[in-house]
Design a protein around this nucleic acid. Sequence first.
DNA 1: CGAGGCCTTGACCGCGGTCAATGCCCGTGG
DNA 2: CCACGGGCATTGACCGCGGTCAAGGCCTCG
Lengths: 188, 188
Amino acid sequence: MTEKLKYYLRINTNLDDYQLDTIVKCFIPKIVKRNTILLSEGEICKEFYFVNSGYIRTYYLTKQGHEKTRNVAFDCSIATSISSFISQQPTSEFVEVLDDSELFVICHKIFYQLVSDIPEWAKFYRTILEMAYIYQNKEIENLVTLTAKKRYDKLLKEYPIYIKRLSNRILASYLNIAQETLSRLKSK
Amino acid sequence: MTEKLKYYLRINTNLDDYQLDTIVKCFIPKIVKRNTILLSEGEICKEFYFVNSGYIRTYYLTKQGHEKTRNVAFDCSIATSISSFISQQPTSEFVEVLDDSELFVICHKIFYQLVSDIPEWAKFYRTILEMAYIYQNKEIENLVTLTAKKRYDKLLKEYPIYIKRLSNRILASYLNIAQETLSRLKSK
DNA sequence: CGAGGCCTTGACCGCGGTCAATGCCCGTGG
DNA sequence: CCACGGGCATTGACCGCGGTCAAGGCCTCG
């Protein structure tokens, strides 16, 4: 059951087999039903997820009650409310399971224990941060330079999986446009 | 001349005096005139700056030729085109000096040498990444949840230095609004 | 003194949001 | 098995925020 997690770590780190085993043991499997909320606004994020199957998203709510999806993690990838996980301050995000999913969970304390104890894991953590930074950087660039239509076209071209697997409601909130606008964009 | 840099490192790291000296020696002073471009779109970012006096910004150009300011580093803070510095891929950003400034520069190679050699520096680097992530995260939240006026009001309240020290042209591009709109917002 | 950059103000307008009505799909319970 | 209700998608009408374009004034610097 831990094959995907092991595979993921093997290709993203230089951990040796012994370390790999140690680390994998720190992850606890968690079976969750679709629509489960793993973390709510105001809570402190204590968990870091590896998505074994299914997929999950992070989003926040505007004052007007609109959802803004910031990230979607499909299977064989990682996710959490990074800001809160880092800072251990209350999050403004929700983490939600979008389909019946199998997750592996590592808690904040053990995660950072590994960062202190295993240099190669510290390096992996650094890489996560670097990638997360670059991802957000692109996201900002898209938001401030592209129209709604161009953001849609770009996503369709670069990451069609988002368009295939997400409902219009969530896809729209990910692209930061109204659901009605997305519907109109698609019908062209 | 290196007092501010030393002070900055002392309060942001746990480096001992010997390490501090080693590191400070890796920074090279650089005096630059206002409007100097330190890095242009398409180049690979090789330098990391500490702003001793003056201030610098990063921005990019849209297809329509509009500037979008993403970051301003005032004195006693750090700056670079982080995405490109991390990835060593061509940047989409410009780094520009906004006033006659004194900088300390450390090059990419030595920076990462220190990351490998001095664990405490690796930790400092991690903290930079964490802070940069959180900063961008807030920026996205502001962009997708607030109107132009509210972004201005929030900046005025939380970081009035931006409004005081930046020209309207640059302030507008930082807030992601047209200069004319900013002018109208201010006159209320 | 002139040129160029910056700021302000007015007129205009289009992108995309809001509101509302309708249709569709699907899960649930009688 | 069908009836019903709720969530989601679509479409139309409307409109407002904020961008664009243009003109004019002011300041700075060569």
